[in-house]
């Protein structure tokens, strides 16, 4: 996997850095990590972290300590689609347990695992600010809310179709 941004990504990177005053470019680290994760297969390898450090002209350790602190950065490879299902109180009282069990059974994976075909990863996460639309999960940049078993089926089918079409 190449770990250098293409021209479009470099332009976006420069836009991120330009938001901060002279000499405060380290502030762009979190957004830059999001950009890198989106650009390089949904996760951040050590090479990617080092690359981000070199772009921002900071020490690699400064990038590692940040990447390991925040839950959105994946430090291991993940499936093409990551199902991040919320399991906190408000979702739990609205039935998230049943949805989690159903996804485990349907995809035959445990939380943290990826399906053999590399398509789906299941991740259990804490409150995503969608408590009124529970149960819910995040897939990439999209929230899937008011989940039911039927809805989970159709979401899985939707992503399977998307994967075959690409």
């Amino acid at each position: 996997m190449v770990t250098t941004f293409n021209d479009t990504q470099i332009t976006e990177f420069k836009r991120l850095v330009a938001r901060y005053p002279e000499g405060k470019h380290k502030s762009a680290l979190l957004p830059a990590l999001h950009l890198a994760q989106d650009s390089f297969g949904g996760w951040l390898s050590t090479e990617t972290l080092d690359y981000v450090a070199s772009l921002l002209q900071i020490e690699p350790i400064e990038v590692y300590e940040v990447a390991t602190f925040y839950s959105m950065y994946n430090l291991k490879p993940v499936g093409k689609f990551v199902f991040e299902v919320c399991q906190t109180g408000p979702c739990m009282v609205s039935g998230s347990d049943h949805i989690i069990d159903y996804i485990k059974k349907t995809l035959d994976i445990q939380p943290g695992e990826t399906t053999k075909d590399g398509l789906f990863t299941l991740k259990l996460v804490e409150c995503l600010g969608a408590c009124g639309y529970a149960p819910m999960m995040q897939v990439g940049k999209i929230y899937k809310e008011h989940l039911t078993k039927e809805k989970v089926d159709s979401i899985i089918a939707e992503y399977r179709a998307q994967a075959t079409n690409n």
Partner: peptide
């Protein structure tokens, strides 16, 4: 600026740290 997934960054001084990268 988007955060990285951390409730603690809602606390104002943690937020500032996060905003500084």
């Amino acid at each position: 600026q988007r955060g990285g997934g951390a409730y603690i960054c809602g606390e104002e001084t943690a937020l500032i740290e996060s905003l500084e990268g």
